[in-house]
Each structure stands twice: as structure tokens, then as C-alpha cells.
């Protein structure tokens, strides 16, 4: 199918959906509200989140707001999915897997830590057909072994099989890492079936994302976790855009300073070239870089896959920022302070 036929409808739709994104004024207003209740009221009255926010049971629960935002994103995924067929639909369904993976991670944590307070049902899709596993089967399991067995026949089984009878405390960590790796590898595999132009565009976006995650992983592994270099390198993501396996290997076996020097020589220098605190804001810096990348892509967007991908990511950063504001307000931070934790930079206010 030609790109005109694939994208003319969805791109028009995205342009409409994108107009629903919050603007700078919305963020400033949110920051100025005095408590969570009036913030939620603001979201109900002035934003696209009306429906989701109204369905919140407990207006004092930040967690519920988070789930409401998440439901909105999933809802948007569903809308986008309706416009795609075949391998494009496949790719977006794979992107949606992150929520399934999140569910699995939470379930593993519940199994291991016997944490009863987690609201498990909120992590599931309201429409069960979007799940990539048999939810009812999983919910019946009460230990890791049963859990892994219940995933037999799904894409997750092989990634988790070797951990099913481990008693080690670190098992959760290994399982989570493997699930994440699986997600990125699946995205890469699915992207191979796209049209050439879309494949290149998508793999570049994915590659940049993997680069940043790999740098962060190795940097933190060396500095804080004292992991073996072999573990560091084995858990890196394979399809980086700038840093390939051998570059990463050198980083993993090197020191912290060597790593920083290496990164400073690339376009990711923003990670370390600041006078400000490096470690605290690393996550935010990565997100901010990607945020502006997606914003640029959204504005440039031609008849290709970029527009939809950019929109869905911007939506996620929007949810993150809203939560940051709400959370910061709870801790009594002032507006200037809040801005530091936000992904987008807000000039006014």
C-alpha cells in the first residue's frame, strides 16, 4: 500500500487529537492551583481528560489520577489502531505491549513481596482482547513457578523460563530486565516489516531511545550498583543508533570518567555537560531530549509513521508532567522548583 493510503486518514486524525494536548498556560494554571482537588477540577473543566478524571473514585489519590491518565493514553492507542492494518497495526499493538509488561512486572512484585496494597485490576485493559496473555490464567497463580507456567505459549515464556525456580532476591531484577529487553527487541523485529522509509525512521527513533537507556544503565551500573561488567554488557539493548556493541563493551569495562568522555563526544553530550546535578536529573534530561525530538517530528511530520509515533509519545510525556506537577504540589514545592522536574521547559509564569 502506498503511504498516501496508509497515512492520509490517520495523520488527519492525529492533527485533530494533537490539538487536545495541553498548552503552556494549562501547565502554569495547574501549578498555581492550591491542592489536588482543584487540580483535578481544572483538568475536568479545561482539558480532554474530563471523562477519565470524572471517573476517579478517590480524589485524594494521586495513584488514581495516574491510572486515569494512563487510561486516556490506552484509549488513544485504540483510536490509532483502528486506522492501521497489517504490519503497521502490528507495530502499534507491540507498542501497546508495554502496558502488558508493566502488568507482568507488577504481578511479579506482588508474588515476591506479597504486597497486597497494589490495585492490580487497574493495570489491566478494560478491553481484554488487547492483552497478549490469558489474564484469568495468570490471576490464578500464587507463586513464580505457576506464574511462569501460565505464560506458556506467549511471547514472554522464553524470557522468563530460566527464572521460574530461582529463590534469589535478585530474580525480580533479572525478570524485569529481560521483559524490557524483550519489548525493545520485539519493536525492532516488527519494524523490519514496515515500508523502507518508515522502517528507517522508526529504527532511528528506537535506536536513539536505546542509546540513551544503554548509557544510563551502564553509567548507573558502574557508579551505584557495582554490577559485573559482563552483566552490564549482557543487559544492554542491541539496536542502538550511535553506540554499537563494541562501544558499549568498552564503556562497560571502563571507568565512570572514561564513559563520560565518550558520551561528551557525541550528540548525547547534554547528559553530562551541565553544571547542575547530573544524577538526579538524568532521567529528566533523557525525557526532555526525546520530548523535543518528538515535538520537532510532529511539526515536520509528512506522510509517514512518525506523526503517530510522536503523538503517542508526547501524550506519555504529558501524563508524566501532569503527575510531576501534582506530586510536587503535594510536597509543597514552589513553581520554579516544580519546573525543574518537568520534561518540557516552561518559560512563562
Amino acid at each position: 500500500m502506498s503511504n498516501e493510503r496508509i497515512f492520509s486518514a490517520i495523520n488527519t486524525k492525529i492533527r485533530v487529537l494533537k490539538s487536545n494536548l495541553l498548552n503552556e498556560l494549562d501547565y502554569i494554571n495547574l501549578m498555581k492551583k492550591k491542592d489536588l482537588k482543584s487540580q483535578i477540577e481544572y483538568l475536568i473543566e479545561n482539558t480532554v481528560y474530563k471523562k477519565e478524571m470524572e471517573s476517579i473514585d478517590d480524589i485524594n489519590s494521586l495513584e488514581d489520577v495516574e491510572f486515569a491518565l494512563r487510561n486516556h493514553i490506552i484509549d488513544q492507542y485504540e483510536k490509532i489502531l483502528n486506522f492501521f492494518t497489517d504490519e503497521y497495526r502490528d507495530l502499534f499493538k507491540t507498542l501497546l505491549l508495554r502496558y502488558d509488561i508493566e502488568f507482568l512486572k507488577v504481578y511479579i512484585r506482588i508474588l515476591e513481596r506479597k504486597d497486597e496494597s497494589i490495585k492490580l485490576d487497574k493495570y489491566t485493559f478494560s478491553n481484554e482482547k488487547y492483552h497478549s496473555f490469558n489474564l484469568a490464567k495468570i490471576m490464578k497463580t500464587s507463586n513464580l513457578e505457576e506464574f511462569v507456567d501460565s505464560l506458556k505459549g506467549t511471547i514472554y515464556y522464553n524470557a522468563l523460563l530460566s527464572y521460574k525456580d530461582q529463590k534469589d532476591k535478585k530474580t525480580i531484577f533479572y525478570m524485569e530486565m529481560n521483559l524490557d529487553k524483550l519489548y525493545f527487541n520485539l519493536l525492532y523485529t516488527k519494524s523490519k516489516f514496515l515500508g523502507k522509509k518508515d522502517r528507517d525512521l522508526f529504527q532511528e527513533i528506537l535506536g536513539i531511545n536505546e542509546d540513551l537507556l544503554n548509557i544510563e544503565w551502564i553509567y548507573r551500573g558502574i557508579k551505584f550498583y557495582k554490577l559485573l561488567p559482563e552483566e552490564l554488557i549482557n543487559f544492554t539493548l542491541t539496536h542502538g543508533f550511535v553506540f554499537k556493541y563494541n562501544d558499549l563493551k568498552k564503556m562497560a569495562y571502563g571507568t565512570e570518567e572514561e564513559l563520560i568522555d565518550r558520551v561528551l563526544a557525541t550528540k548525547y553530550e547534554f547528559l553530562f555537560n551541565s553544571e547542575q546535578e547530573i544524577d538526579l536529573y538524568m532521567d529528566r534530561r533523557i525525557h526532555r531530549y526525546l520530548y523535543y525530538m518528538f515535538l520537532k517530528l510532529l511539526k515536520a511530520g509528512g506522510l509517514n509513521i512518525v506523526l503517530s509515533i510522536a503523538y503517542i509519545h508526547l501524550l506519555e510525556y504529558e501524563a508524566k508532567d501532569i503527575i510531576s506537577i501534582l506530586e510536587a504540589k503535594r510536597y509543597g514545592l514552589d513553581i520554579e522548583e516544580i519546573k525543574k522536574y518537568m520534561i518540557r521547559s516552561i518559560e512563562r509564569g
Binding site: N158, A159, L161, S162, Y163, Q166, K170, Y174, M177, N178, L227, L228, E230, E231, N234, F235
Partner: peptide
């Protein structure tokens, strides 16, 4: 121990 960790990071199915 180290070997165990390395193998686990490789998703070694024992």
C-alpha cells in the same frame, strides 16, 4: 556466584 550472575544476564536456561 559471578558466573551465576553472568549466565543469568544471558538468560541461560539451565
Amino acid at each position: 556466584e559471578e558466573m551465576g550472575r553472568i549466565l543469568r544476564s544471558l538468560n541461560f536456561k539451565e
